[in-house]
Design a protein around this nucleic acid. Structure first.
Lengths: 229, 229
DNA sequence: GCCACTTAGTGTGAAAAGTCAACTAAGTTA
DNA sequence: TAACTTAGTTGACTTTTCACACTAAGTGGC
């Protein structure tokens, strides 16, 4: 690994940033926070924070702490996206950022500005707003991951409340993929993947035929399809 | 992101580790190095090193430096796997390791022990040898990633020399997947994916019918299938 | 009360893809 | 020149996929 005989060397700045997605209406939203301090004062940025070696047991704990600070959400779907590190991405010096992607329910959230930011706000995921640091690249990478994973995983289900209909589930997939899916093929795929179960007796009522409500069989667990949708 | 008003805080140790795979015979091998210094003196570990803020432009450059130090290979297939960080994984303190996965040709390699290690050696990828730190977990994650990506990507092609036959390509896929594939279906899939091209006139000769040699159309680029193999 | 409307959920037939195995091709070796 | 080995193709049969139409079950208008 490394040589402890090496003279002491400067350690990079280490932080954790989050790309927090939620579904509102039929749109995908991402949470951004306005920076209260330099560099990039007043710019929008992904929520994040330094790793606190004395507080955080590990990287995921640090990510959960940041998420909870900003949104109050304690039990999200959380997945490590990638790490971004380099000499020029932060004017303060060589910086390393481990980025997590979270999928949450917008209506469970109580936005707080949190340390180092003046306000937090939902933006459309494809917003063109200018972002601090290399956060534009990071957001792009998160959207790529999300879109590529939608087709063959149960991940989008985490954008829905605990009980949902198959129609709503299909709408989430369609919203992220940006195209319509065949209803019968979709339902067959979902049935085969075997990751939802009907909540017997529970129906969603509207001015039409009531729909069976379903829930995830294994919450917080993502299963993969062997075929793309 | 973070608050510069925060009092100075201890930064974690930041390193880059590599899971370097190569194919020898029909086996998948992984490169391990024996540690020269504590902690875990004398144990086998994934090759790695600290991020050098003054030398490495970014994370990938750091990974390439480590790879070149250990193997002399300059142009590998290199992909960021994940980051592992926590308070207990390194007895010296809160440590953060960004792990890259490399696929290289074993016969292009000139092993060097490099800084901080006494020797470097190829092991079977499924070796049971005891590893330093949490490197056992990391190796497992790399194998998972490799196996899950084999089925729907052109990634295994990077374990072959520049010119290869379709039979050799199929053997690589089969080696990693651990099962036989249908010859005609495999060839059809490869043709559709359109990522190799015949080298006209070049044939592999043996004591049987000569085989057409192919090369990657876009070297160092991985394309995905829409179906699993 | 009945019909139009909407969304839920199922069925069906044609087309595409996968499976399995045999067949031809082209070289080397004895 | 015949046996052997691996390359590469072909075809019949089965399974899956896809597009689309159909039935189901509620509400609301009149």
């Amino acid at each position: 690994m490394e040589n402890p005989d090496e003279p002491e060397f400067p350690r990079p700045i280490a932080s954790v940033d989050l790309v927090i997605f939620a579904q509102s209406d039929r749109r995908l939203d991402v949470l951004l926070a306005r920076r209260a301090n330099p560099p990039f004062v007043g710019d929008w940025a992904l929520p994040g924070g330094f790793v606190h070696a004395d507080v955080d047991a590990d990287l995921e704990a640090a990510a959960r702490r940041v998420l909870s600070d900003k949104t109050g959400v304690e039990t999200p779907y959380l997945e490590q996206l990638a790490s971004f590190g380099g000499a020029t991405r932060d004017p303060r010096g060589w910086s390393l950022s481990v980025v997590y992607m979270a999928l949450i329910l917008a209506d469970r959230v109580t936005l707080r500005s949190g340390a180092g930011t003046t306000e937090a706000q939902w933006f459309q995921a494809d917003t063109k707003v200018s972002l601090a640091f290399d956060h534009r690249d990071i957001l792009g990478a998160a959207l790529d991951r999300l879109r590529s994973k939608v087709g063959y995983s149960t991940l989008p289900a985490h954008l829905l409340p605990e009980a949902f209909t198959l129609g709503e589930l299909q709408a989430v997939y369609e919203g992220i993929l940006g195209r319509a899916l065949e209803k019968s093929a979709f339902r067959k795929r979902i049935a085969e993947a075997d990751f939802v179960e009907p909540i017997t007796g529970e129906m969603r009522r509207a001015s039409n035929r009531p729909a069976q409500l379903y829930r995830l069989k294994r919450a917080r667990h993502t299963t993969l399809f062997d075929r793309a949708l």
